[in-house]
């Protein structure tokens, strides 16, 4: 998936959870991604986060550690 598309999808999720209390929002974003993103997609996101996560909204950046690492393929 193109990096722009991935960033847009992650940010869309973040925007929904931005209306929640902060901690709940951070957890919500990570939980949603863990529940619905296939390992390949999470890996791509985590790789992007590892290099600074440019373009991602704060809630995604803050939740980075909560996103489950996929097992090596």
């Amino acid at each position: 998936m193109s990096p722009e598309k991935m960033i847009r999808m992650a940010n869309q999720i973040a925007m929904f959870f931005e209306t929640k209390p902060h901690a709940e929002g951070v957890n919500g974003v990570a939980a949603h991604i863990n529940d619905f993103w296939e390992p390949r997609m999470r890996r791509q996101l985590l790789d992007h986060l590892a290099t600074g996560g440019e373009g991602l909204r704060p809630l995604v950046l803050e939740g980075a550690d909560l996103i489950r690492k996929p097992k090596a393929a």
Partner: peptide
């Protein structure tokens, strides 16, 4: 682990 959705499969 969750799998791929249609649009994710195409990507």
């Amino acid at each position: 682990e969750p799998g791929l959705r249609i649009n994710n499969m195409l990507d």
